[in-house]
Amino acid sequence: MSNTGTEIFAFLLSISGWIFVAATLPMEYWKVSSNDGSVITTGTYFSNLWKDCVTDTTGTSNCKDFESMLALDGYLHVCRALLVSSVIMSFFGAIFALFGMKCTKIGGSDKTKSKIAFFAGLNFFVSGLCSMAGFSVYAHQIMSEFFDPFFFDIK
């Protein structure tokens, strides 16, 4: 019974990780900076993998999608690729894990189920590495821009 409980717990944990990464992708507040100088020039700039937005003092937001794929910075391409591939691999890993669990009736014999479960676990592991690498690349870029005294970005 404990083996079945462990399988179900691992399956639910991996599904929740997949949901969290998939829910993080469309969020707007990946990078936030504000200009709180005077009352007239106060504004907030926020950005994610897909668009840039600016909010002024009245609370009006103006968002603009990235115009060209070729004009994007390299780190955005890397982050997009890693995170989207992570979501796709996790989806297929969840399907393989569902077939490979011993408590399900589909998937064949125990030997076949163990091979499918191994492949699902490997798929989830690689997917987790991709998502951690994607988030780390984006965070490294933000930190290096923040601590660079000569960095000045005009949007």
Rank of each mutant, 00 (worst) to 15 (best):
N3I: 08
A10S: 10
L12N: 04
L13R: 07
I15T: 13
I15H: 07
V21R: 02
A23F: 12
A23V: 11
A23G: 14
T24M: 10
P26C: 14
W30G: 00
V32L: 15
V32S: 04
D36G: 01
S38V: 13
V39N: 07
V39I: 08
T44H: 01
T44P: 01
T44C: 07
Y45R: 15
W50A: 08
D52N: 15
T57H: 13
T58H: 13
T60F: 06
N62D: 14
K64A: 12
E67R: 06
E67D: 13
S68V: 04
M69A: 07
M69E: 05
M69L: 12
D73F: 00
G74D: 06
S85G: 04
I88C: 09
I88S: 07
M89Q: 06
S90M: 00
S90E: 02
K102Q: 15
K102Y: 14
C103G: 09
D110L: 15
K111H: 13
K113F: 03
K113W: 03
A120Y: 08
N123P: 00
N123D: 09
S127V: 02
C130W: 02
M132A: 14
M132H: 02
G134Q: 05
F135V: 11
S136F: 12
S136G: 15
Y138E: 01
Y138K: 03
A139K: 08
H140W: 14
Q141N: 15
M143C: 08
S144F: 08
F147S: 11
F151P: 01
F152D: 12
I154V: 10
